[in-house]
């Protein structure tokens, strides 16, 4: 029942304080089904904090983060769900989850939000293939009868494992790492590690993929490959992507929707073209007050 353009993720009045520091201040935005939403902003704007709140690593100080599976009609139950104190509800194929109430692993397991990290977090001592199988942990856990069937070597588990290996092989083909499948992940060059981390996140079967600076440290060729990969994930699998990125060429080329943060506050929200010409955004990036934007812009030839 998924329709492109329906709202998938709704962040409302999200606030995160660390002691006296307000890292994210009353942030609201929406991400839509099948779209690539970019979260940009200067260093220290609070982008990664937003990610950590969405993926359950941080408990937000205030605010609500709703995520919808399937039919968007279920959004109408958002307030009822909030009042009920539950983490989520399901209606047939559709589901609605309040991510701020869920511990990190359940955000991935039940709400199906996967993420990558700014400083890559692979399992360096495990092979590339093993990394992708760990990502299918929950499915395999059920197939192995919570270890019980597996220990006795029942065929049902073997079938499930073969299927997981096939899925991993698929993704390795997609990211061009099939020839490295049996090598330790820690041995891969940087760009390959980035792609492997994305493939690993995809193996958890997400509806929303959160990528924290996927293009950081990549050379232009790798960066272009990444763009293709992200576009194809969005187009072929209908998976929505939430992206933090500094590389504007990536952001402008692939994203459908851009949210700009500065000092934890949303300063702009809209299509890439709109955001690009927003004086507030330019001011934030140039580090000058709003009213001086034109002057400074003229000086540097914008």
């Amino acid at each position: 029942m998924t329709i492109a353009g329906d709202i998938l993720l709704r962040v409302e009045h999200l606030t995160m304080r660390f002691g006296g520091l307000v890292a994210v201040d009353d942030l609201s935005f929406e991400a839509r089904q099948g779209e690539i939403t970019a979260l940009i902003g200067p260093n220290g704007a609070g982008k990664t904090t937003v990610f950590n709140c969405i993926t359950g690593f941080y408990k937000p100080s205030e605010g609500r983060i709703g995520l919808c599976h399937g039919d968007a009609a279920i959004w109408s139950e958002l307030d009822a769900l909030t009042d009920s104190g539950k983490r989520g509800i399901t209606r047939g194929d559709s589901g609605l989850y309040l991510l701020e109430r869920m511990p990190d692993y359940l955000v991935t397991q039940n709400a199906r939000v996967a993420r990558t990290f700014q400083n890559i977090r692979l399992f360096p001592g495990m092979t590339v293939l093993e990394n992708l199988l760990v990502a299918q942990h929950n499915a395999l856990m059920v197939a192995s009868g919570y270890t019980l069937f597996g220990i006795f070597g029942l065929p049902s588990y073997h079938r499930a494992e073969r299927a997981s290996v096939e899925k991993a092989r698929d993704w390795l083909n997609r990211v061009g790492l099939i020839h490295r499948a049996d090598d330790p992940a820690g041995d891969l060059p940087y760009g390959d590690q980035r792609r492997l981390e994305i493939a690993r996140a995809m193996c958890t079967d997400p509806v929303l993929l959160c990528l924290d600076e996927p293009a950081a440290g990549l050379n232009p060729r790798e960066s272009a490959q990444l763009n293709e990969l992200l576009m194809s994930i969005g187009n072929e699998h209908g998976i929505s992507i939430l992206l933090i990125e500094h590389d504007m060429s990536v952001v402008m080329e692939i994203s459908d929707h851009v949210v700009v943060l500065d000092y934890g506050i949303k300063i702009s929200d809209g299509a890439p073209d709109v955001v690009r010409n927003d004086p507030k955004v330019i001011a934030a990036y140039l580090g000058v007050p709003d009213h001086e934007v034109e002057k400074v812009g003229a000086e540097i030839g914008l």
Binding site: D104, T108, A114, F123, N138, M141, G150
Partner: peptide
């Protein structure tokens, strides 16, 4: 046997990187 089961791989993944484990939905 356990090493080849999801629980064993989860143990080793835990040894490698606990935060990454959590991000993959492992309790």
């Amino acid at each position: 046997r356990l090493r080849r089961l999801p629980v064993g791989r989860a143990w080793e993944a835990l040894r490698e990187d606990e935060i990454a484990c959590r991000s993959l939905g492992i309790n």
